[in-house]
Design a protein around this nucleic acid. Structure first.
Length: 651
DNA sequence: CTGTCGTTTATTTTT
DNA sequence: TAAACGACAG
């Protein structure tokens, strides 16, 4: 037997060996999906398929990196690696070569979601649309929805008044982005699709290159991603998709579960493999998960099974309030630690970020180290965004969004009126517009003139010095630390200042990798790369910590002991999902995902009283509890003398 | 232009 | 509860 197939079960082997033609693999939680995927790629390479002909698409950088690592480890000798990347990075790679066809210039930059929102707000301001009546965020969502549905501003047929507004904003939004030579995230998929459709010869080039295509997390693909895949795969038809419809939890982000459900319609000759053996969880945990998910209508029929032991019952614990809930969790962690578990064996999952507060407070009181996974991302921090905005404006002076961000940060006496003046005379290049505006000013040292001089100086440095030097120079020249001080003094949080300066240091560490390049090119690559990175790989210390995260961020992970807190109607399922059946089903899948993170021990908690937005709510236990087979559960109801709870759990 | 004050609103978010 | 935003006075 091929050594690469060793350690795989029959189904996994089937998935690995079906190299030619369309293949759909439905992989249950803990069924060795990544194993199947990576072994398949290694198998293909070991059997003479040119790695250059293989394209593997993932959703996250993390998944890409893991796949690359594991494939490398499977190979006997060093070989060229296939193209492995996120949808967006592969889209970007294509655009870098092909975007000329659409009339953009090649030094385009990529806007982040804050930029997008700022742009929509600006446009709505110009159109005098009341942002209270029409939420800019909602409008942006609608635009993004249209884009992912591949509806262009030209082809959009608005029906009612609101849609007509959306159409207007959408059109201006698109024009303005193009004018700034900027792309949004959606464009990284949508534009390659357009090029493929309009330029068969370009598409043919990619057909010749990528003859084998693999897609991870196929259930999460949106319509544009679906088109992207279909176009690339239509010639050779060697399309391997793997995923789990039951774990689709990103519908709200345009994931279209029909893509996976209809794969066999798209490819009637598709080979279908079900990975149903679970290597992760106890029988009880699996039974609970299965019990939940069977309440959903549309899904791929499958039954998970495991050779693992039955395991202990799932604890359903009722507590008085969220403080007692947190204390209970800590008591359970303490008990686990006494039995030899480590802090990182424990994970607390919640539906909304707001719920982490009570848990954190309890952990801090008891001095237990923890880490929040997800939450505020590195590149979303103000100090990072500020510095990056300077870099982006230096790099692309047509980027009015970055200009908008920095022209008065730190405060230098520039405001809306100065901004209007500049925008009035702008062609494309804002830096030139600033020059034009200052030319009319008679006084010698106006704030705008100072700004102009500052930017000239920064641009000079940026074009000559390595990237880290430039960053240091920016921070120094704009007196950024002083500015941060004024911010943190107001909020009375000096520890914040230190942390923020450390973050800037961290940014420099990332930038160092580009110092060796030509300054302009290095800056470009740096900005491009971090546009696609949502979190920096910061080298964390190795202290074991309790993990806290939303159920969404837990997808793909596993832990010996999992707590799911807030198992209450209104919270989980979330109140906003209850009335829409398809949203209710998504909540249920989320529950399925959360439960199946647990390997050995699962504890579900709900409270009688919960403080929410400052008012106390009385919540019923979540309906999901009733949907689990009751013989897998161990109910622990609230002691009638509820007050004692908090004391009882002291450790 | 800047800072303060009151009002509003509140999921999840791989890029 | 608290953050985020817009209105308004200095």
């Amino acid at each position: 037997m091929d050594p690469i197939l060793k350690g795989l079960n029959d189904k996994q082997i089937e998935a690995v060996k079906a190299v030619d033609g369309p293949v759909l693999v439905i992989s249950g939680p803990g069924s060795g999906k990544t194993k199947a995927l990576t072994h398949r790629v290694a198998y293909m390479m070991a059997n003479g398929i040119n790695p250059g002909h293989i394209l593997a698409l993932t959703f996250t950088n993390k998944a890409s990196a893991e796949m690359r690592d594991r494939i490398q480890n499977l190979l006997k000798r060093r070989m060229d690696m296939p193209t492995i990347g996120t949808f967006h990075s592969v889209g970007l790679r294509i655009l870098r070569r092909e975007i000329g066809a659409l009339g953009y210039s090649e030094n385009f930059s990529i806007s982040d979601s804050d930029d997008q929102l700022a742009l929509v707000k600006r446009i709505m301001g110009e159109l005098e649309i009341d942002p209270k009546r029409y939420n800019p965020r909602t409008m942006l969502n609608k635009i993004s929805k249209l884009k992912t549905a591949l509806v262009s501003p030209e082809s959009y047929q608005p029906k009612d008044f609101t849609e007509k507004l959306v159409a207007k904003i959408y059109r201006l939004y698109t024009d303005e982005l193009k004018r700034m030579n900027m792309l949004d995230f959606d464009d990284l998929i949508v534009l390659p699709v357009r090029i493929f459709k309009e330029r068969p010869r370009v598409l043919a080039k990619y057909h010749a290159q990528w003859k084998y295509i693999l897609v991870d997390e196929y259930q999460d693909t949106s319509h544009d991603q679906y088109q992207f895949i279909q176009l690339l795969a239509q010639k050779n038809r060697n399309l391997f998709v793997i995923g789990d419809d039951a774990q689709s939890i990103y519908m709200f982000r345009e994931a279209d579960i029909r893509n996976i459900l209809n794969f066999q319609k798209d490819y009637p000759d598709a080979k279908v493999v079900l990975l149903e053996q679970n290597y992760r969880s106890t029988q009880n945990i699996l039974a609970a998960a299965q019990g939940i998910i069977t309440n959903n209508k549309s899904q791929f029929p499958k039954t998970l099974w495991t050779d693992n032991s039955q395991g202990e019952r799932i604890v359903v614990k009722e507590t008085l309030n969220e403080r007692a809930e947190a204390n209970y969790i800590i008591s359970q962690i303490a008990a686990g630690l006494r039995q030899g578990r480590y802090l990182h064996d424990f994970t607390v999952l919640y539906r909304t970020h707001a719920q982490s507060r009570a848990i954190e407070e309890a952990l801090i009181t008891k001095g237990l180290p923890y880490q929040i996974v997800g939450g505020i991302k590195f590149y979303e921090r103000k100090e990072i965004k500020d510095i990056l905005a300077y870099l982006r404006f230096i790099h692309n002076p047509t980027d009015t969004l970055s200009f908008e961000r920095i022209y008065n940060i730190p405060p230098r006496g520039l405001g809306p009126s100065a901004y209007k003046k500049i925008m009035a005379v702008r062609e494309k290049n804002i830096f030139e517009a600033v020059k034009k505006t200052t030319a009319d000013e008679t006084k010698p040292d106006t704030p705008l003139k100072k700004f102009q001089k500052l930017m000239e100086d920064l641009r000079q440095t940026a074009s000559e010095k390595p990237l880290t030097k430039t960053i240091g120079h920016i921070v120094e020249k704009i007196n950024y630390e002083e500015y941060l001080k004024t911010l943190t003094v107001v909020k009375n949080a000096p520890e914040n200042l230190e942390e923020r300066m450390e973050n800037i240091q961290e940014l420099k560490t990332v930038a160092r990798g580009y110092d060796g390049l030509d300054p302009d090119e290095g800056r470009g690559r740096f900005l491009e790369e971090i546009a696609l990175l949502q979190d920096a790989d910061r080298t964390k210390d190795e202290t074991p910590r309790v993990n806290l995260m939303t159920m969404h961020s837990s997808k793909g992970l596993e832990f010996p002991v999992v707590f799911i807190v807030g198992m209450e109607e209104g919270l989980f399922p979330h109140a906003r999902s209850v009335y829409q059946p398809h949203e209710m089903e998504e909540e249920r899948r989320l529950c399925y995902v959360a439960i199946t993170r647990a390997k050995e021990r699962l504890i579900l908690t709900h409270t009688k009283y919960r403080n929410i937005y400052g008012t106390t709510e009385v919540n019923l236990p979540s309906r999901f509890l009733a949907e689990m087979p009751q013989d897998t559960l161990d109910y622990q109801f609230l002691d009638p003398n509820g007050d004692e709870e908090i004391i009882k759990y002291e450790i």
